[in-house]
Amino acid sequence: MATVEPVVGEPAAVADLGGERALLVADVHAGIEVGLRYERGVELESRADERRDRLCSLIDGTGVDRLVVLGDLAHRVGAPEGEEREELAALVSAVTERVPLTLVEGNHDAGVADAFADDVDVIEPGGGRLGTGIETGHGETEGGIAVLHGHTRPDPSLRSAEVVCMGHEHPQVRLEDAVGGSRTERAWLRGPLKPSVFGDGDAGDGSGTESSPPSSGPELVVFPAFNERSGGTWINVEGGSFLAPFLPEGLAAGDAYLLDGTRLGDFRRV
Rank of each mutant, 00 (worst) to 15 (best):
T3W: 04
V8A: 15
A12Y: 11
V14C: 11
G18L: 06
G19S: 12
G19I: 03
A22V: 13
D27E: 11
R37F: 13
E39L: 14
V42A: 15
V42Q: 12
L44Q: 13
E45T: 09
D53T: 08
L55R: 01
C56G: 06
S57V: 00
G61P: 06
L67T: 06
V69S: 08
D72V: 00
H75G: 01
G78R: 14
E81S: 15
E87H: 11
A90S: 14
A90Q: 12
A90Y: 03
A94R: 09
T96H: 04
E97T: 08
R98K: 14
P100E: 05
L101E: 03
E105H: 04
E105C: 08
D119A: 15
V120E: 06
E124N: 05
G126P: 04
G126A: 15
T132E: 14
G133F: 05
I134T: 13
E135D: 08
E135P: 01
G143N: 05
G143Y: 05
I145Q: 08
A146H: 07
P154D: 06
R159W: 03
C165E: 09
R174P: 01
D177T: 01
W188S: 07
G191C: 06
K194C: 00
F198I: 07
D202L: 07
P213F: 00
S215V: 02
G217M: 02
P218V: 01
V221S: 10
P224S: 08
G231T: 12
T233Q: 04
W234Q: 15
G240Q: 07
L247C: 09
L247T: 14
